[in-house]
């Protein structure tokens, strides 16, 4: 049948040009934030606003995110902080940011020792490929951070 041949014959170059032009006009992502994006500086400012002058350290946070998100409307995220979760020593909160969304804040998750485990999952919107940053505040005042990039697939018909 030659109808399928017609579009199979699109050369890779032509196809790429089309993707370039069409990528921005992707249908169906109308619920996603489309305004000007935040940036790394805005994320830093937001973090400062929460934790003051403290310097976040690396470590203790496990960030579970897809490397490539099939749809930016619904990106699953699980965050876990290594903490004994006792009255004396626990993780108080984890703040999640996305540096290329119109607003950097995604969520602040507040734990208590009654959680038993500093682990939580939710789903978020990512307007485009960007870094997701988590900042954990511990009961002793120390602050930890972790970052992961998520590539967001734009456009297409959903298959």
């Amino acid at each position: 049948m030659n109808e399928s041949k017609q579009y199979r014959d699109v050369s890779r170059r032509q196809a790429l040009i089309v993707v370039g032009a069409g990528g921005l006009a992707a249908a169906g992502l109308t619920l996603l934030p489309q305004a000007a994006s935040a940036d790394a500086a805005a994320v830093d400012a937001a973090i400062k606003g929460l934790i003051g002058g403290k310097t976040p350290q690396a470590g203790r946070i496990t960030l579970d995110l897809p490397q490539i998100a099939e749809n930016g409307n619904t990106v699953p995220i699980t965050v876990e902080v290594d903490s004994p979760m006792t009255e004396q020593d626990y993780c108080k909160a984890v703040h999640i940011f996305a540096d290329k969304n119109p607003q950097p804040g995604v969520a602040s998750i507040n734990f208590t020792p009654a959680c038993g485990k500093a682990k939580a999952s939710t789903r978020m919107r990512l307007a485009k490929t960007q870094n997701v940053v988590a900042v954990a505040e511990m009961s002793d005042g120390s602050v930890y951070t972790a970052k992961a990039e998520v590539k967001v697939t734009i456009g297409g018909c959903g298959g």
Binding site: Q6, Y7, R8, D9, V10, R12, Q14, A15, L16, I17, V18, V19, A21, G22, G23, A25, A26, G155, C157
Partner: peptide, 21 residues
């Protein structure tokens, strides 16, 4: 005919990128 098909495909952004198996 084939040109028309290509133009239409290009216009829509509904391009099938991978050929073959």
């Amino acid at each position: 005919m084939r040109r028309i098909a290509l133009a239409a495909v290009a216009a829509s952004g509904l391009t099938v990128m991978l050929a073959g198996t």
